[in-house]
Simulated scan of single mutants.
Amino acid sequence: MPESVPLHCPACRREHVYTAPPYPCACGAPSAPRLDAAAGPAVLVHRAWDEDWITVRCTACGRRNQWPHPELGCPCGTVLRIPVAGAPSPGPGHRGPARSAAVASTRDAVTAAVLCLRRLGHRDIRRADQRPPSGIGLAAPGLVVRVDPAARPASSRDVECLWLTAMTESADCVYFSAAGYTEAARLQADALAVPLFALDHGGTATPVNGPGRLLVRQGPT
């Protein structure tokens, strides 16, 4: 089960319970970081790409994956970085196949999605306060976005989760996937009017369903 720790915000003293989100390893097993319950959260002031990622070892196959560093957005506006036990963040001088393959592909997917969103007229694009169950969450005013760099096609459950998140925030949503979508996911997206985009290796985002093509035809908002 995902690990949870109690913590409080240093800025407003509000109490929280944080649950580490699991991410799918290449072997298919869910993998989540071990949280350090003894250490308090740090207030995130400035972002650095290398510090946004941690190395997490899959307990099923032993593969060392690069996952986003756990964070929590407090209602007071403070972003808290959750301490992780036994999973140091790779520094600027780190080299290795896991970082070069996993981090580069994730970065390319996010960059392609951001460029597409900007072409559609969205300027204030940021990392979402709450992380999605898988992939990378982005947000803009009135918009919730999921970028999925995984090697598996996005499922209908993935699409529905994004749509539900958007509904709770009274926002629109867009899904970007590097591995495409299952047929069930496309049908679900059409039924819920969720725009789907496929990301290719050249960094291009292409609409692959009716709502996605309609969004492109409408142009900048």
Rank of each mutant, 00 (worst) to 15 (best):
P2N: 08
P2S: 12
E3T: 07
S4G: 06
P6K: 12
H8W: 02
C9F: 08
P10A: 07
A11W: 05
R13H: 15
R14M: 11
E15R: 15
V17K: 13
Y18L: 03
Y18K: 09
A20S: 15
P21E: 00
P22L: 04
A26V: 08
A26H: 08
C27H: 13
C27I: 08
G28P: 07
G28T: 07
P30W: 05
A32M: 01
P33Q: 04
R34W: 14
R34L: 15
L35G: 04
L35N: 06
A37F: 10
G40D: 09
P41N: 03
P41D: 02
A42F: 07
L44M: 10
H46K: 14
D52R: 11
W53Y: 09
T55E: 09
T55N: 06
V56Y: 02
R57C: 02
C58G: 04
N65M: 05
W67T: 04
P68S: 03
P68F: 05
P68V: 04
P68C: 03
H69S: 08
E71S: 13
L72M: 14
G73K: 12
G73D: 12
P75A: 13
P75Y: 10
L80Y: 08
R81P: 07
I82N: 07
I82P: 01
P83I: 10
P83R: 11
V84C: 05
P88F: 11
P88Q: 13
S89E: 08
G91W: 10
G91L: 13
G93C: 00
G93P: 00
R95K: 01
P97T: 13
R99N: 14
S100I: 12
S100A: 15
A101S: 15
A101F: 13
A104H: 14
T106M: 06
D108C: 04
A109Q: 06
T111H: 09
T111P: 00
T111R: 12
A113L: 06
L117R: 05
L117D: 00
R118M: 14
G121V: 03
G121K: 04
R126P: 00
R127Y: 13
D129A: 15
Q130L: 11
Q130F: 07
P132Y: 04
P133R: 00
P133G: 02
P133A: 05
G135Y: 00
I136V: 15
A140G: 04
V144S: 09
R146V: 04
R146T: 00
V147S: 01
A150H: 14
R152A: 13
P153F: 08
A154L: 07
S155K: 01
S155L: 01
S155G: 02
R157C: 03
D158L: 01
E160M: 01
E160K: 03
E160C: 01
C161F: 10
W163Q: 05
W163M: 00
L164R: 13
T165G: 11
S170D: 13
C173T: 08
S177H: 03
G180R: 03
E183Y: 01
E183M: 08
E183S: 12
A185Q: 10
A185R: 09
R186T: 11
R186V: 12
L187K: 09
Q188G: 04
L192I: 01
A193R: 09
V194T: 10
F197D: 01
H201S: 15
G202E: 12
T204S: 09
N209Q: 10
N209C: 11
G210H: 02
P211S: 07
G212N: 08
R213Q: 12
R213Y: 01
L215T: 07
R217A: 15
Q218L: 12
Q218D: 11
P220G: 05
